[in-house]
Simulated scan of single mutants.
Amino acid sequence: MATSRVVFVFSLDDQDLFQEIHGRLMNTIAQKAVVKQAANFQEALNLLNSDTKPEAIFVTDSGITTARNNLVSEKLVDFVRSGGRVVLGGLFSSFVRPDDLRRYFKKTWNLPWKVGSYHRTTVALNQNAKGLPSSNLPSSYSQKAVFLADVNSSAAWYLPTEDSVVESHVFAPVSVATSETPVVFAEVGTGWLGYIGSVNSEEETDTVVLGMLGLL
């Protein structure tokens, strides 16, 4: 089905690994929008400087946090502040170092977010969060994720409940921090910055990514 919507996908570290793990998600995105991909700094810059205005930009790995991509990050901030959507997901949470993540969010986006827990647990949709699509998001699901701390609850699409515990074959089912979130969508200027902490290829996470990209 023809579509005029365009999504930029920036895989600045390992495009092949991302495609191998998240091929199902990319196939779904390609059914809903024209996908233009960048595998390095120059390709990303060319897309950002082109006349094409994307529906959203999906950044799929932690390469964006490195100094060599500072100019790309600056343009992403400009894009969001003027009404665009940028989503950090895919392999991003799997490979970003905690100090790099905290520095990136603080220095680039002026946000206090930092790495929290890393575990599998069941999280529930936060109906009070901002920017939620009108329908189709799962009401709750289990995911293994890098959670963020110091996130305003209005930006947390999913949160653990009082009944959420660590789901593991190794560790005891202890309670988890209900203030930490694996799925964030925050207002920045007149646009939105998303973070997906899931480290696996969960079908429910695919749906969340589509929601953040404006494709549901």
Rank of each mutant, 00 (worst) to 15 (best):
Y141S: 01
N27H: 12
T121H: 07
A56L: 11
W109M: 06
K114F: 00
G63H: 07
L45R: 14
R24P: 04
M212L: 06
G189F: 10
G83H: 10
A2Q: 11
A149N: 12
I29Y: 06
L12S: 13
K144Q: 08
A172M: 09
G131Q: 03
W192Q: 13
T178Q: 13
V6C: 09
F171A: 14
T122G: 06
Y195E: 02
G214S: 05
Q19N: 13
F8L: 08
E162P: 01
K32G: 05
L47V: 09
S134H: 06
L213W: 05
K106P: 01
V151M: 09
D51H: 04
V170L: 14
T65P: 00
T181E: 07
S82P: 05
D99C: 03
T207V: 14
Q37K: 14
V87N: 09
V80W: 02
N49H: 13
R120F: 01
V184S: 06
R103W: 12
V123K: 01
V184K: 04
K32D: 06
K36T: 01
G23C: 10
K75S: 00
K144E: 15
T161E: 11
V96M: 03
V80I: 15
M26Q: 13
F79E: 13
V34A: 09
A129S: 10
R102F: 08
A156W: 00
E162M: 04
K32T: 06
V184M: 09
A44M: 05
A44L: 03
F171H: 11
S4L: 07
F18M: 13
P98S: 13
S50L: 06
R103E: 12
A124S: 14
A156K: 04
L91K: 12
D13A: 12
D99T: 14
N152D: 15
P160V: 11
S93N: 00
S73N: 05
Y118H: 09
L215V: 10
Q31V: 00
V87G: 04
N49I: 00
V6D: 11
D206C: 06
L137R: 05
A129V: 01
S4P: 02
Q15D: 07
E187D: 03
T178S: 08
G83Q: 07
I21H: 04
V166T: 11
L76M: 10
L45K: 14
S142P: 05
E20Q: 15
P112A: 08
S142Y: 03
F105C: 11
V184W: 01
K32N: 12
V80T: 11
P173L: 06
P138L: 10
S117Y: 01
H119K: 04
R24S: 14
I57N: 12
V35S: 00
V166K: 12
L12R: 10
S201Y: 05
N200Q: 09
S62C: 11
T122E: 15
G131W: 02
G83I: 09
K130W: 02
D51T: 12
A67T: 13
F18E: 10
T65C: 06
V188N: 13
D163L: 12
T178C: 02
